[in-house]
């Protein structure tokens, strides 16, 4: 018990330090990238308008064009440490509010895609592993290889063309109906706009989890303990359920949590294609238009998101799976 709590303390300290370093590195890197960007935020903002030099100076001041990058960063950091993420330059409201709104939308998208890919991938993997070498297995494997080679935005585009444009089953893009007051948007409306992007994103996540589950099941089914279960008269689907699924589930869930970064990256592209008002789209705009406070805010929240996925995977691996605990005790 004592060893366990000591292990937990070391684990927690390590993770917190890692998170702080990670956030520092990604925020500095993002700021540097924006600073190197050849795009002038002021001229984008102005567009075709004609303005006076005084107005231009005010705008330049607002966008912070002439402030050196390190000064910008230190200012920002000082505020962040006080708990203030600053105001978004393009949305003209607090970054925390933008993120709250956008992240909720993204979270709904990512969570449904994550569940879809997890469940579908696991089931396909179990079936393929059980039928190892048969035509069922071959079909599932081929399907996975095709999926792995499919670019995210392409699949999203095809799905939108087929289901929204041609068949008209789903709305074409956006998170809510156009021209409806925010208060009148129903849950059903939101759901309708969510389904297609979620399926597009989810389908892409199926392949890795299915292939992994398949491999793992084949490995488990040739293990000593499955051999012994057979020797005791267990067979067929019951055997797979009793020993196979049980032993494959934990590693598969771990892998699914490790996939948070791919999930976030995929969401970025899918949101673009479907014009889905999530964090991904906000990130792209913030980047293009040099909205530094918003961009840094998004970078922090996405880093945290991926970090949490890895953390959960680590916790499952080190604290939940008794097999790992056993190995440690033997070591």
């Amino acid at each position: 018990m004592k060893a366990e709590s000591k292990k937990l303390a070391i684990f927690t300290t390590k993770k917190i330090l890692k998170l702080i370093c990670l956030m520092a590195v990604v925020s500095i890197a993002s700021l540097w990238l924006v600073d190197q960007s050849p795009i002038d935020p002021v001229s984008i903002y102005i567009g075709a308008m004609s303005i006076t030099p005084e107005q231009k100076a005010i705008l330049e001041e607002y966008w912070g064009v002439n402030t050196p990058a390190h000064e910008k960063y230190l200012n920002w950091l000082g505020n962040v440490l006080k708990g203030d993420l600053g105001d978004s330059l393009i949305y003209r409201m607090p970054v925390s509010d933008v993120i709250k709104e956008r992240f909720t939308a993204s979270l709904a998208l990512m969570a449904s895609a994550w569940l879809l890919s997890g469940v579908l991938g696991f089931v396909l993997g179990i079936v393929a592993g059980m039928k190892n070498g048969t035509w069922v297995d071959k079909i599932i494997k081929t399907y996975c290889y095709i999926l792995l080679a499919t670019p995210t935005f392409w699949l999203a585009l095809v799905m939108m063309l087929v289901f929204s444009v041609h068949l008209g089953w789903f709305p074409v893009g956006l998170g809510v109906p156009i021209g409806v007051a925010a208060e009148e948007v129903t849950v059903l409306d939101r759901l309708k706009h969510l389904i297609l992007p979620a399926i597009a994103l989810g389908l892409l996540g199926v392949a890795p989890i299915a292939m992994f589950t398949r491999e793992k099941l084949i490995e488990v089914m040739s293990s000593d303990y499955v051999l012994f279960a057979k020797a005791r008269g267990e067979k067929g689907f019951g055997l797979v359920l009793r020993h196979g699924v049980r032993n494959v589930a934990l590693p598969a869930i771990t892998l699914q949590f490790l996939g948070f970064s791919e999930l976030f990256g995929g969401a970025l592209l899918v949101e673009q294609v479907f014009s889905y008002p999530g964090l991904g789209r906000a990130a792209v705009e913030a980047g293009i238009r040099s909205d530094v406070p918003l961009l840094l805010g998004i970078v922090l929240i996405s880093t945290l998101f991926v970090f949490v996925g890895n953390l959960i995977a680590d916790i499952i691996y080190q604290f939940v799976d008794p097999r790992i605990r056993q190995q440690e005790m033997e070591a």
Binding site: S223, D224, Y225, L227, F228, A229, R242, H243, R246, N247, L250, P322, R323, Q326
Partner: peptide
């Protein structure tokens, strides 16, 4: 040996 026992059961 004990490897013949299911580690999670």
């Amino acid at each position: 040996s004990t490897t013949y026992l299911d580690p999670l059961m």
